[in-house]
Design a protein around this nucleic acid. Structure first.
Lengths: 128, 128
DNA sequence: CCTTTGGCTTTGCATGGGAAAGTAGTCGGC
DNA sequence: GCCGACTACTTTCCCATGCAAAGCCAAAGG
């Protein structure tokens, strides 16, 4: 049965964290999620194909959101920035990917349903 | 083995379609993906919890991107807008969710790895 | 020295999302 | 047959934000 009734806000995806739902930031955080020992600015730059300025900006955003922790130090005499996920950040990330999973589940369902649907005009609809 | 070597751009996610990778639009397109017979403006508004203006704007973006197809008509004497995924749009959406799947795979990997990693300072790193 | 390179930060711009206001036609009451 | 509320969108505006280019500073190197 093709039950037309759907829940309001069914596809609102309120849980999709704005800070994390972002190409660049998603890449950054995913890189970091795998490494409890963190990553250096330069590594991140290469892994995510970001420009310096870009990365800098996103790191600031993530830090201000409390998702990452930035430690400025030195390697020999050159400055080096070490970034890590905070515990809270990791939690938030996990929540985010949970929502993503449900989006994906919807998508897969949608793809399945689509294959057996037929294209019709809605009842009483007359084109302009 | 904790192989440090990673591919450049490993987490760049170039394939993450900007038009689709968007809370609101993602909801809209996912709603539409399940229904070959399309959805009305009002339905979409409710399903995605969007304001009229918001929805209108996103629909225009999606239409201009060739992802959806908008038909303006009437139901009785009231105007009604019917939106549908185009074939190209559906394809693009499927590509998008494929990328999403790989992101998710990365994320799950990351979560697994994290549990057995230990927090250490990088070799030769001295805090500021 | 004086330039180049490495490692970031800052600035500036242009896009782009979202709230609010606007438009246009409809329905219902009196 | 006018008036106000409503339905169905569209347009306008503003602010946040992504991204690139330029800037900054210390350290090598010729």
């Amino acid at each position: 049965m093709t039950d037309k009734k759907e829940v309001e806000g069914r596809y609102a995806y309120e849980g999709l964290d704005r800070v994390l739902h972002e190409k660049a930031r998603l890449g950054i955080v995913t890189s970091l999620a795998a490494r409890a020992d963190g990553l250096l600015f330069t590594d991140l730059k290469n892994l995510c194909n970001l420009t310096d300025g870009n990365l800098s900006r996103h790191l600031t955003v993530l830090q201000e959101a409390g998702i990452i922790d930035i430690q400025k130090g030195f390697r020999g005499r050159r400055p080096q920035t070490l970034t890590r996920l905070t515990d809270g950040g990791r939690k938030r990330y996990l929540e985010y990917i949970t929502v993503l999973e449900s989006v994906l589940a919807d998508a897969v369902d949608a793809a399945k349903v689509a294959r057996r649907a037929k294209k019709v005009m809605p009842e009483g609809f007359s084109p302009a």
